[in-house]
Design a protein around this nucleic acid. Structure first.
Lengths: 179, 179
DNA sequence: GGCAAAATCACCCGAAAGTATGAAGTAAAT
DNA sequence: ATTTACTTCATACTTTCGGGTGATTTTGCC
């Protein structure tokens, strides 16, 4: 069996069959329409369904920003700058438990809260456009943020940024606790 | 002119005028309704509004509790991005020790040895060109491999591939044991 | 009130990534 | 002897990234 074929054209096949099902549905609806003349009902029903969906979409979309990453700076002075002159490229890596974030690293690198959010999005595999959508800002803004992140992490690609961020415990090492 | 005043209360003013415009609009619609009997339109409109509300209500009601990522001062534990809380459509995730790789997942997805090597390179933050150099093949070959990887993992970006691979334990969850 | 940092956005441009398609050689299975 | 999967490579094309630059707006702080 050409399994690869199926995999390759998975979406085309899915689209095709989906379309077919939809057409059957429409045909059936048409039949209903002819037999019982419930055009208004159907119309209202369609509107109802449509706008219920819209409402859900809206709510989800608008509810998102309520989930804000609150980053409290450590109470102890984060200002200790004895090594300000020559900060080693990769300073010591603390041994924190899994799933933890090293606040000191974040402070040392001077990553802002917004930048962390963008970094998090990157690590989740989102595109800049998707991150922009999640944070309700423009694509250009995300680009600016990511540029700064790359500067601060001293990398040139987002994949590198993710790698470095994980290594320095800037983002959770364990993104998937147990699911 | 108290220009500053305008600036300061910009949003309040905008909100106020927006509300006013909306009210005028409603008044005008009412007039239309009285003059021409566009009951259907109003009916659909009402349904639309009503069900949009229903949708929002539903979404809010059914939405998962808004988990806020709070970072505590001490060696802070951070909840790893709760919006991925939705049960992923992926197959079961085994609970292997850290740094382990789930061979079953690899087998299930049909990833070849070469593809794994490419995937590993991706996760290390390498560019396609760099991976090509490491594996002594051409850039195009790496592109082909990565395309297949994306197909098999059902993703469209390398960052997504990395994320998924980590989640499914296809690549070591803990790339950096303790350094 | 004013300053500085953070956050926002825009535009251009080259590089990298990714898609689509075709092809060809090798090894293992049927 | 076919078939199938794997690996390799190529060309052409579209999309996304990332760098560089400049600007405005918000916001916290003194």
């Amino acid at each position: 069996m050409p399994f690869r074929f199926f995999r390759r054209y998975k979406y085309i096949l899915l689209y095709g069959s989906g379309l077919a099902i939809l057409l059957f549905l429409l045909k059936w609806l048409e039949w209903r329409f002819l037999v019982f003349d419930h055009a208004i009902d159907l119309y209202s029903g369609a509107i109802a369904v449509l706008f219920t969906g819209l409402g859900i979409w809206l709510a989800v979309k608008l509810a998102k920003p309520k989930v804000i990453t609150v980053t409290l700076p450590p109470p102890a002075a984060v200002a200790p700058r004895p090594d300000a002159a020559a900060p080693p490229p990769d300073a010591g890596i603390s041994s924190l438990p899994n799933g933890s974030v090293d606040q000191k690293q974040i402070a040392r690198l001077g990553l802002s809260a917004r930048e962390l959010e963008v970094l998090q999005g990157m690590a989740e595999g989102l595109s800049n456009q998707e991150i922009a959508g999640r944070l309700f800002v423009s694509l250009n803004t995300i680009k600016t943020h990511s540029s700064r992140i790359f500067e601060k992490l001293d990398v040139r690609r987002r994949t590198q940024a993710i790698e470095t961020a994980r290594r320095l415990r800037i983002i959770a090492d364990r993104v998937h606790p147990k699911v």
